[in-house]
Simulated assay, not measured.
Amino acid sequence: MSQGDERGYGDNDPGGRSDDAYSTLGGTRQTRTRMPRGTDDGEGYGRRPARNSRSLVMIVGVVVLLIAAIAFANQGGGDASGDAGEKKPDAAGAGPTAATGTKPVEGKNGTIASGFAHDQQGAQSAAANYAVALGSAEMFDKAKRDAILSATHDPAVVATLQTDMEKAYSAGFLKAVGLNEDGSTPTGLTFVSRTIPVGTKVTAEGVDSATVEVWCTGVVGMAGDGSTKPVTATWFTITEKLKWSGGDWKIESSSQAQGPTPVTGDNRASTADEIAGAVEGYGGFTYAR
């Protein structure tokens, strides 16, 4: 889903929220990422360019509309961490980054990982992979968005969520973020929306339920010559309430909060063409504990 100053999905107020959309909490457990071999990013994205008020308004607008739609669809879900029968996991330190011994998932539901283990580790893997899908540029295309929602959410909430998200991603909204009214990208530009999980933790769990926080960073904006909405980096925490449904973990409801946010480094900001080239040249990951 969209997300520099974006806010997460699922604020309980359909009209907007006060948290940063590209924010997500970090936790006491970390995710292990399967990194593709032979990739070495020497510079990274660098320091984010100075934001003007116009780009800030665009990013906030993306987040507010997205959050409102998800919050409306998930109304009545209750407190994600206060369900009866759920227990708090041990409040130990962060999980080890060494291999856990469990093989990463091999199944796919479209382009999204599936077939997660029915345990705490599987819930964390599912939450991380779902955060990536819901924060992708594909969410701005109706057909792809509907497929993503179907693949990641409990069937009981999918239909309502798809309808409300269609209202959120209106032609006027898409135009406001720099896209064409049908969600396509203007010629010569590259629309960027990516979410990258940094770590996960389980805050509550039951036999067939789990609440997982995914600490993320993300990039969003329009890359290319003449772009007035530069790509910016954000930090946020997504909280996903998961349910074991149909032999896999699915999202019942979700919310997002700002940070934790590290101090900006001293890397130079890359040009719009460099960002566009990176987005087109580097694929994403499958995340697993």
Score class of each variant (00 low, 15 high):
Ala68Arg: 01
Arg29Thr: 06
Arg47Ile: 07
Gly15Ser: 07
Val62Gln: 07
Gln75Met: 09
Ile70Gln: 08
Gly82His: 08
Pro49Arg: 01
Leu66Pro: 00
Gly46Pro: 00
Val62Tyr: 03
Pro49Leu: 06
Pro36His: 01
Ala68Ser: 08
Ser53Phe: 08
Gly46Tyr: 04
Arg54Glu: 09
Asp83Gly: 06
Ser23Cys: 08
Val62Cys: 11
Thr31Leu: 12
Thr28Ser: 07
Gly82Gln: 03
Gly44Ala: 04
Gly61Arg: 00
Leu66Gly: 11
Ile67Asp: 13
Ser18Phe: 09
Asp79Ala: 12
Tyr45Lys: 06
Gly44Asp: 01
Arg47Asp: 13
Leu65Phe: 04
Ser81Arg: 07
Pro36Val: 13
Gln75Ile: 10
Pro36Asp: 08
Arg48Ile: 15
Val60Cys: 04
Asp83Thr: 05
Gly78Asp: 04
Asn74Tyr: 12
Ala71Glu: 09
Glu43Leu: 12
Ala21Ile: 15
Gly61Leu: 01
Glu86Tyr: 02
Leu65Gln: 07
Val62Glu: 06
Arg51Glu: 12
Ala50Phe: 05
Ser55Met: 05
Tyr22Glu: 05
Gly76Tyr: 02
Arg34Glu: 15
Leu66Ile: 07
Lys87His: 11
Pro36Tyr: 00
Gln75Phe: 11
Gln30Asp: 12
Met35Ile: 13
Val57Tyr: 05
Val60His: 02
Gly16Cys: 01
Asp41Cys: 14
Thr24Lys: 00
Tyr22Gly: 14
Phe72Leu: 14
Asn52His: 06
Asp79Trp: 09
Val62His: 03
Gly38Arg: 05
Asn74His: 12
Thr39Trp: 08
Ile59Phe: 05
Arg37Asn: 03
Pro36Trp: 01
Arg54Asn: 07
Tyr22Pro: 01
Ala73Thr: 02
Ser53Asp: 09
Gly44Leu: 02
Thr39Gln: 07
Met35Tyr: 03
Glu86Gln: 04
Asn74Asp: 09
Gly46Trp: 00
Gly38Thr: 08
Thr33Glu: 06
Ser23Pro: 00
Ala68Cys: 03
Phe72Gly: 09
Arg32Lys: 08
Gly46Val: 05
Ser18His: 06
Arg48Gln: 11
Leu65Glu: 14
Arg32Gln: 09
Tyr45Ser: 08
Gly38Asn: 11
Gly26Lys: 01
Ser18Thr: 11
Gly85Tyr: 04
Gly27Pro: 00
Gly76Ile: 04
Arg54Trp: 14
Asp19Asn: 09
Thr24Leu: 06
Ser55Glu: 10
Asp40Arg: 01
Gly61Tyr: 00
Gly38Trp: 11
Ala21Lys: 02
Lys87Leu: 07
Ser18Ala: 13
Gly27Tyr: 03
Ala21Val: 15
Ala68Phe: 00
Asp79His: 06
Gly38Phe: 12
Pro36Thr: 03
Val60Phe: 07
Leu25Ile: 15
Ala84Thr: 11
